[in-house]
Design a binder for these strands. Structure first.
Lengths: 159, 159
DNA sequence: CATCAAACGCAACAATATATCATCGGTGCA
DNA sequence: TGCACCGATGATATATTGTTGCGTTTGATG
């Protein structure tokens, strides 16, 4: 199920949004939402799993009829991540659209080794605990990478 | 300060070990500690920051007088990570020696963007919270990636 | 000492990411 | 209008990181 249909199923989580809302949010912050940036974000939203930069390039190539160069893809992804509307999953070298709309939130990704999908959850408590640890050590946190790999519920049933 | 001297400074944390203890622990589990594996682990212990696979190759080349091929390095690192005596830091594409001796523990790394060093901390509470979240969603966790990037205390003073 | 599996070497290659410079298009301003 | 500037994108090349396949060596074990 692509991200664009999943917010209805996830009603227990707070503050979901969709592509258009994400784009609007960026615009409100004064960010330029160029055609390329919108295209990349849409591609992430319509994907059913995290996409690598080169996957994205291939998907966009089909849509646009031309090749976007790797540096453009990476620049665009960096922008979207800074805006908080996408996130990089380090353990996959891949990117997902961010379902939670806050600009600066810590999210935890559950990455399924079988189907390859990554589900984003939010946990304020974890964030708080981690911040306390960091604070105690005098460490100033700029960015959080919280990823769990394993097997999602549907994939356990089928195996 | 290299890992090999740091366990004395970190007296508040539990169950620290050094290179020799780590090697002994692997042997107890029946793992073959070959010269290459010991050399790689020692190199990680004596480093003052996480090392990339190719950094490691270069360091070993100086010591051994010959080039170890990339696949050997990666195989060795995989082995050490499985044994729990080293860990991969996804956000750096690099590896560190693991200071905590438990075979299957979740550790959080504080990665300084300035000096490049990564400090390992353990937080049972975080681990527990995350496990609860995963359990609620029917997700079976196999591996955890918990990394915070930012600035460590010493680096803040100097800037 | 014979056997077997695990570890290692080697060569090629694939995937991921960045550096550098050129170009394009809008914006502000004389 | 003409011009200088700036951010976004294009294009090319290259760097860095990671993998595959296969043959050889090594070391534990009977």
């Amino acid at each position: 199920m692509p991200r664009s249909e999943r917010h209805l199923a996830n009603t227990q989580s707070p503050a979901h949004c969709d592509v258009d809302e994400a784009i609007a949010a960026c615009r409100l912050r004064g960010a330029q939402m160029t055609p390329l940036r919108q295209a990349v974000l849409s591609a992430l939203w319509s994907a059913d799993r995290p996409l690598g930069a080169y996957d994205l390039r291939d998907r966009l190539a089909e849509e646009c009829g031309r090749q976007i160069a790797a540096p453009s893809i990476y620049r665009t992804l960096d922008f979207l991540c800074e805006q908080g509307v996408a996130a990089r999953i380090e353990s996959l070298n891949a990117y997902v659209a961010c379902v939670h709309s806050d600009h600066d939130h810590a999210c935890v990704f559950l990455v399924c080794e079988s189907c390859g999908d990554a589900v984003e959850i939010e946990n304020q408590q974890v964030e708080q605990l981690i911040n306390e640890d960091a604070k105690r050590l005098g460490f100033v946190v700029k960015h959080r990478v919280l990823e769990l790999s394993g097997f999602c519920a549907p994939c356990q049933e089928t195996s």
